[in-house]
């Protein structure tokens, strides 16, 4: 009986996670699929062939999405890593304040901030450019990266660094041969978080990119609100594939011992 109920619970979890994907997958190849048909009466690749045609601008959107998300996550890691190290390793006066400041952007919706900046970006030519979009993507990504890395550094033993130093290693060598090998699983997790946050941004990209920077969410959104289910479903699937691939690549670092996110505020 107990075994049975556990089985039911697990089946429910599986179904719950997968349910919204089912209509997406079917719609991407359906044609004339009207209520009350459970399965389409006709099949068609119209959604896919449109998505891969020149008309859809998909290649451009993919390129710009990747450009924005990879650059924003790399920048966030570069900027966030030193702060993550300090927050994870040291106690100092004002630490709570610093933590609060770094957490603040996760609580305040980013568009409240970007609405204010927008006018300056227009004035100084940053609006409608990739760089402008990358800069505002730092607002939602940097806090997550810093906090994940703080969690990673909290489990990092600095003693190895002093040992390396006493053996004559310089700062760069310490970073390269001691610190990075020890923390890279956490860096990858942080990078994945940042990439996914940036990859999914719609409103910030729309506001600062103004449609000229055309990322996948913008492309998808204009179809999602137009009611063309075939194209919307095909674009949705294309949109989630890189995110899933990234999860597959990084999942080994995400589970088990590396409870980084939970640990950040856990101390």
């Amino acid at each position: 009986m107990k075994r049975f109920s556990k089985g039911v619970a697990i089946a429910l979890i599986i179904f719950g996670v997968l349910a919204p994907f089912i209509p997406l997958l079917i719609w991407s190849v359906a044609r004339r699929w009207y209520f009350p048909a459970i399965l389409p009466t006709e099949w068609s690749l119209r959604g896919w062939s449109y998505a891969f045609s020149n008309a859809s601008r998909l290649p451009q959107a993919l390129r710009q999405s990747f450009a924005v998300s990879t650059t924003a996550s790399l920048l966030a890691i570069l900027i966030g890593m030193p702060a993550g190290r300090v927050l994870g390793l040291y106690k100092f006066r004002g630490k709570t304040l610093v933590e609060f400041l770094i957490l603040a952007p996760t609580i305040v919706p980013a568009f409240a901030v970007v609405m204010g900046i927008h006018v300056l970006f227009i004035r100084y030519g940053l609006a409608d450019t990739l760089s402008g979009v990358i800069i505002v993507h730092l607002i939602p990504t940097l806090p997550y990266v810093t906090l994940v890395l703080a969690g990673v550094f909290a489990n990092y033993n600095v003693d190895y660094e002093s040992q390396a130093r006493s053996l004559g290693a310089n700062t760069w060598q310490v970073i390269r041969y001691v610190m990075l090998p020890a923390i890279y699983p956490g860096v990858i997790v942080a990078g994945m978080f940042a990439f996914i946050i940036s990859w999914s941004q719609y409103l910030l990209t729309l506001m600062i990119g103004g449609g000229r920077v055309l990322t996948l969410p913008l492309l998808l959104f204009s179809f999602a609100s137009s009611g063309d289910n075939n194209v919307t479903a095909a674009l949705s699937i294309i949109f989630i594939l890189p995110a899933i691939a990234l999860l597959v690549i990084t999942s080994r670092y995400l589970t088990g011992r590396n409870a980084s996110l939970g640990a950040t505020r856990g101390n």
Partner: peptide, 23 residues
Amino acid sequence: KKIFTLLFVGLMTIFMTACAGAI
């Protein structure tokens, strides 16, 4: 693990260079 890191960093670099100057 090392291979995965390389893969990850490599992918990012490829995307970055492929996209430079996209707009």
